[in-house]
Simulated scan of single mutants.
Amino acid sequence: MTAPVIGVLALQGDVREHVGALVGVGADARPVRRPGELDAVDGLVIPGGESTTISKLVDIFEMREPIDKRIAAGMPVYGSCAGMIMLATEVLDGRPDQRGFAGIEMTVRRNAFGRQVDSFEAPVEIAGVGGAAFHAVFIRAPWVERVGPGVEVLGRVTDSPTGDRIVAVRQGNLLATSFHPELTGDLRLHRYFVDLVRAA
């Protein structure tokens, strides 16, 4: 079976870690910074980082319209942490000029769990992914406050400083998590996404 080609949006954030995780589950993974590079991929990862910075860089590198078009055409996309914010239709506590791709019908609260010093780790079970709960790493992470009728809640964190929160969702070919699986060595979520890309 030919390895799916999956790009990692390489404007800011955990690019190298996501590339390594994708390669580890059999994908042909590569950084993507330009529209021509986006044309060559079957799926895209939007990594963690700083969502307002990513939003600005998407415009500077002229990537907004190409990514919007590919999402509308059904390209699978996975967003982790800031990537989740970039995929949301509504962002609370963001900057007024911050714009994402509005792919998943959800309301996300930016930096919901607190600042860098409030980062934490907790177990999260993900629907559709077998095995033990993920050891999830939350760093200045968002949470999901509301989802639309077409959004499947895949995971919640119950052992967090603020109680029970939605931290993993899927809508069609779009997947998002509040946490950073690329930092843990647990490749199950990346394998789940690669399988989604193959199916698409």
Rank of each mutant, 00 (worst) to 15 (best):
R115S: 03
P66D: 02
M106A: 15
M75P: 07
E50S: 07
Y78H: 03
I126T: 09
L57Y: 08
V77F: 11
G79V: 09
Y78L: 10
G94M: 06
F113S: 00
K69S: 11
R109I: 04
I54E: 08
I104G: 08
P76A: 00
L44Y: 08
L44H: 08
R99G: 01
A88M: 11
G74L: 03
V108G: 06
E65Y: 04
E105I: 00
Y78P: 06
G114A: 06
R70C: 01
P66G: 01
T52V: 06
L57R: 13
V91P: 10
Q98F: 05
D118P: 11
R109G: 01
F61W: 15
K56R: 15
I46Q: 07
D93W: 12
R70Y: 08
A102K: 15
F101I: 03
C81K: 11
R115F: 10
F113C: 03
S119F: 07
M63E: 06
F113L: 02
V58H: 07
G48K: 13
E90C: 03
K69I: 05
A112V: 03
I46W: 12
M75H: 10
L92K: 14
P66R: 02
E65A: 13
Q116N: 05
S55L: 06
M84L: 15
F61K: 00
V117I: 14
K69F: 00
R115G: 00
K56F: 12
V117F: 13
D59F: 15
I71S: 04
P66H: 01
T89D: 12
I46A: 10
T89L: 11
A102I: 00
M106I: 04
R95Y: 09
R110K: 13
S55W: 05
I85E: 10
F113M: 00
M86V: 01
E121W: 06
D59Q: 13
I46E: 10
S51C: 11
S51P: 12
R109D: 04
A82M: 11
S119K: 05
G114E: 10
R64A: 09
C81G: 02
S55V: 02
D118C: 06
I71E: 05
E50G: 08
R70P: 02
A88K: 12
I71F: 04
T107C: 01
Q116D: 09
A112R: 11
S119I: 01
R109A: 12
P123V: 03
G94P: 12
R115P: 09
L44R: 09
L92D: 07
R64D: 08
L92G: 00
P76C: 00
A73G: 05
A72T: 04
E62C: 04
R95A: 12
K56V: 06
K69R: 15
I71Y: 02
M75S: 03
K56T: 10
M106R: 12
S80W: 14
R109Y: 09
R115M: 03
V45F: 12
R99Y: 14
G83P: 14
Q98M: 10
R64Q: 12
L87N: 03
E65L: 08
G100W: 11
K56H: 13
T107W: 06
R64G: 07
